[in-house]
Design a protein around this nucleic acid. Sequence first.
DNA 1: CAGTTTACTGAGCATCCGTTCAATGAAACG
DNA 2: CGTTTCATTGAACGGATGCTCAGTAAACTG
Lengths: 217, 217
Amino acid sequence: MATKPATTRVKRRDRTRQDLINATIDSIASQGFAETTLEKVSKRAGVSRGLVNFHFVSKEKLLIATLEQLSEEYAAFWNRALEKADQDPVSQLAALVESDFHPRVCTRKKVAVWYAFLGEARSRPTYTVVCNGWDRSFSTVMEERIKAIAELGGYTGIDYEVVARALGALIDSLWRDLMLSPKSFSREGSKAMCFRYLAGVFPRHFDSEGVLDSNAA
Amino acid sequence: MATKPATTRVKRRDRTRQDLINATIDSIASQGFAETTLEKVSKRAGVSRGLVNFHFVSKEKLLIATLEQLSEEYAAFWNRALEKADQDPVSQLAALVESDFHPRVCTRKKVAVWYAFLGEARSRPTYTVVCNGWDRSFSTVMEERIKAIAELGGYTGIDYEVVARALGALIDSLWRDLMLSPKSFSREGSKAMCFRYLAGVFPRHFDSEGVLDSNAA
DNA sequence: CAGTTTACTGAGCATCCGTTCAATGAAACG
DNA sequence: CGTTTCATTGAACGGATGCTCAGTAAACTG
């Protein structure tokens, strides 16, 4: 697991830090939060026991670094998905849904770690902040696109806030399925369910397969 | 916290067991799963250290008993809400929403405990079973009512499965808000959001305040 | 090529955790 | 009322955990 070519010192340093964070993710995902100890993490990373304290000062700070990395990776991923997509709100909303189930960010392992932190969020304020930021900005972006689709597409009586919240919550519940019962989870089925939801709200722009017509009247 | 009138032996026994479970809930909610130790729990319950092992054999079994009680309390609550409600599906669905935000089951403390168990679910199979059963039967019941409303109310093109999932997920995300940012949470606002969602799907039967007309054409 | 810096090791330490168990006293029983 | 049953206590134990620190070797520096 830990292959460390003898290169420059900073590269080794960064590599080791990353190995430790990855080992932490692996450990939390497979053993759980409570069973994740520094000994197991360092063994997984292939380094000695005391290294965590050297690099991260304390176990708690290693955990925070892990959560922050996960959070930033996720945010960066859907931000880039937005940049790559067409500029019309229909394509952008579809891109958000697609990116949320991409194997890069939507892994059973990562979802499990995310829920593990969420479970401890109540009692550790630092986690709460990161967890709140997680999808707060995400649902803001979704709501903007949903509002634009409603206005440009000529839909009346759409409750933007509710639609955005429901879509975000739907995605979340599908993630949870991946964690709790991965056998019944399917990436395509999950995306289809999101698009079926959107088809119910914007029938001229979406169907269960995704974008129907990004410029429909 | 532990007031034990000297009554019969079984009553004392049950009372102590309940005190321990309550103390476990309090501890998980305020200190988190990781920081919940038998010493803290027994101190909170006002009994001696070794009593947990006497009553529950092990810490793990105390945790399972706690989760099961929470789960059963919740299920019993919305089942009774269904019984007390009118028999038409519109009233029943409204009763489910109402009961889900009732102060008896929807407390910040209880939600926090629920998420704490969910966070450890991945690595402990027993939790997974309970967590899965939790809203599995709940969403089945919701889906039946939604289907009935669509058929009786003359709505076409309703995707029952998606509507039920989205509503369940919406409720879940509102619960999470209660845990993470209780200041911005409001019981009435949460119910209103659910009803706003239902108003979007069944505009002749719901508005943001709840049931509009349970017998609308 | 000395000398300095620094990532890294691993044994050691203080602490805490879950569990055990002999002792205790009050309810249950006949 | 004497005996049994059992909820309860609290000290004790083995083990694990997070963290410290003196020591080491390899990368940097000039």
